[in-house]
């Protein structure tokens, strides 16, 4: 639990998630939003998490900070976080209301949400909200906190930050709200930034600016980043490592070059094919992955992707569950690449 563990000889990852399961116990049944996720975030590096809507990316991220809403809860696995003093703690074993996790939230690990209005309260001026966050996590006077907040609003590219400090969220454009939230997350200089689709709602020039800001903070403070996105352009631009999720599991992971150049999992390949690219005008329709993510209550037996996979092998893929295994340059969970278990 919160006891110190011996410091390993290898440079340990900042965050190691192993076998994480987060389930929602709804009236209709159990939604296995996250169902055995394995991944690591290395210190100072950027891991991009890719995957379709509903495959559990946000819930995985919220599990790390222990802010999963009821009826959801972590039912298995571990989230090992290595703190600044070198000790490791298992976030999954902490109480979501404990002082320890509250200390980690915001000051060690900060999160930017997919929808800005989830972390920006609608009725409070944005400046006040940021100042409160700063005062909660950093030792500063109110006046210093205000200057820090304005400086941060400026750095995320909000024009006339001193005046915007007094603005209400509804007075800002969608993109500016997003930037205000990013300012709030970064004002405490976290060691790990979890960014859930932070630039999805932003235009390319603002996006470039935000990605730069994140890159600057990475350099300045050695911050690591877990970036959840579905924009493969962004992934190609900023990722060092990539994890591809499908139905609550990581189905392929590797360094960014291997994922783009030698994708092994049929799902990774399909994702790479479905991006509209500038200058490549598809005459008719875009190649889309057929079908949809299965109902979370009726998970397919065997391989989760089998209902949509063009390479589906009856008798194998519907019988056995592929596990992540290193194959060449990536770890992949697919029987096209991994040996089929001999029996049962």
């Amino acid at each position: 639990m919160t006891q110190p563990t011996p410091i390993p000889t290898e440079p340990a990852p900042l965050l190691r998630i192993a076998g994480l399961k987060t389930h929602f116990f709804t009236d209709d049944g159990v939604v296995k939003a996250v169902d055995g996720v394995d991944l690591t975030v290395e210190p100072g590096k950027t891991l991009c998490v890719l995957g379709e809507s509903g495959c559990g990316k946000s819930i995985m991220a919220r599990s790390i900070l222990r802010i999963v809403d009821r009826p959801g809860r972590i039912v298995g696995g571990s989230i090992t976080y290595r703190a600044a003093d070198g000790r490791s703690v298992d976030l999954a074993a902490m109480s979501p209301t404990s002082a320890a996790i509250r200390q980690i939230r915001g000051s060690d690990i900060a999160m930017i949400f997919q929808e800005p209005m989830t972390s920006l309260g609608p009725i409070q001026k944005i400046g006040k909200q940021i100042v409160e966050t700063i005062l909660l996590h950093r030792r500063m006077s109110k006046a210093e906190a205000k200057e820090t907040a304005i400086e941060m609003l400026n750095r995320v590219g909000i024009p006339r930050p001193r005046e915007r400090f007094e603005a209400y969220p509804f007075e800002l454009s969608g993109g500016m709200r997003q930037r205000a939230m990013i300012a709030m997350a970064l004002c405490c200089q976290p060691r790990l930034l979890i960014a859930d689709e932070p630039t999805t709602a932003l235009d390319v020039t603002t996006q470039a600016q935000i990605l730069d800001l994140i890159a600057d903070l990475k350099e300045e403070f050695g911050m690591a980043v877990m970036l959840i996105t579905h924009d493969l352009g962004v992934v190609a631009e900023v990722a060092e490592d990539v994890a591809v999720m499908y139905l609550g599991k990581v189905v392929e992971k590797g360094d960014v070059y291997s994922i783009f150049e030698e994708p092994k999992h049929p799902y990774t390949r399909a994702l790479l094919e479905s991006v509209p690219r500038l200058g490549v005008r598809h005459a008719g329709r875009l190649p889309a992955i057929e079908g949809m993510v299965p109902h979370p209550l009726v998970r397919p037996t065997g391989c989760p992707f089998r209902t949509r996979c063009r390479a589906f092998m009856p008798g194998i893929c519907d019988v056995h569950q592929p596990e992540l295994q290193r194959q060449g340059r990536t770890d992949v969970a697919c029987f096209l690449h991994n040996p089929v278990p001999a029996h049962g």
């Binding site: 470039a208 924009d231 493969l232 190609a236 690219r277």
Partner: peptide
């Protein structure tokens, strides 16, 4: 400026994005 700021989905073409980030305008 807008067209040149589009990230290309190819890590080998990782461009000098910093040049393309624009100062916000109002």
């Amino acid at each position: 400026a807008l067209l040149s700021a589009v990230p290309v989905p190819d890590p080998r073409q990782r461009s000098d994005r910093r040049l393309r980030a624009a100062a916000p305008a109002e």
